[in-house]
């Protein structure tokens, strides 16, 4: 299996870490932007960029609640995102087994 067969949306270190982190939460649970940033040690701009790409692919849903100082952004892995990570992990296993 060629490396190109890996999902290009997930096959980027920062996005892989985001998706893997969100996948450890029970289905339906969301994590705030702040906690995710703390856990992954990414800059806000970098995290926003990657979250947007994942959102565009339909792998995560981003919800913003409240206004101004009290506003809170949370991200959750969608069913599609969970399935994509499972498929990615399976593809990785196949690829490494064949190397």
């Amino acid at each position: 299996m060629p490396v190109g067969a890996l999902d290009p949306v997930i096959h980027v270190p920062a996005r892989l870490r985001i998706v893997a982190t969100l996948a450890t939460l029970p289905p339906g649970d969301a994590l705030t932007f702040t906690r995710l940033q703390e856990m992954l040690d990414l800059t806000p701009g970098n995290l926003i960029t990657h979250l947007r790409k994942l959102e565009e692919a339909g792998y995560i849903s981003v919800e913003k609640t409240g206004n101004g100082v009290a506003s809170r952004t949370s991200a959750a892995l969608t069913h599609q995102g969970r399935a994509a990570l499972d498929a990615y992990a399976a593809a990785l296993r196949d690829l490494i087994g064949g190397l």
């Binding site: 892989l16 701009g45 970098n46 926003i48 960029t49 490494i96």
Partner: peptide
């Protein structure tokens, strides 16, 4: 943002080895 540009550049320029990806995952 500026970080967005950096992230995109890094994304294109880096070859992400599958073994490294498995370890990172």
């Amino acid at each position: 943002t500026h970080e967005e540009d950096l992230a995109s550049t890094a994304e294109v320029g880096e070859a992400f080895d599958p073994r490294a990806a498995a370890t990172l995952l």
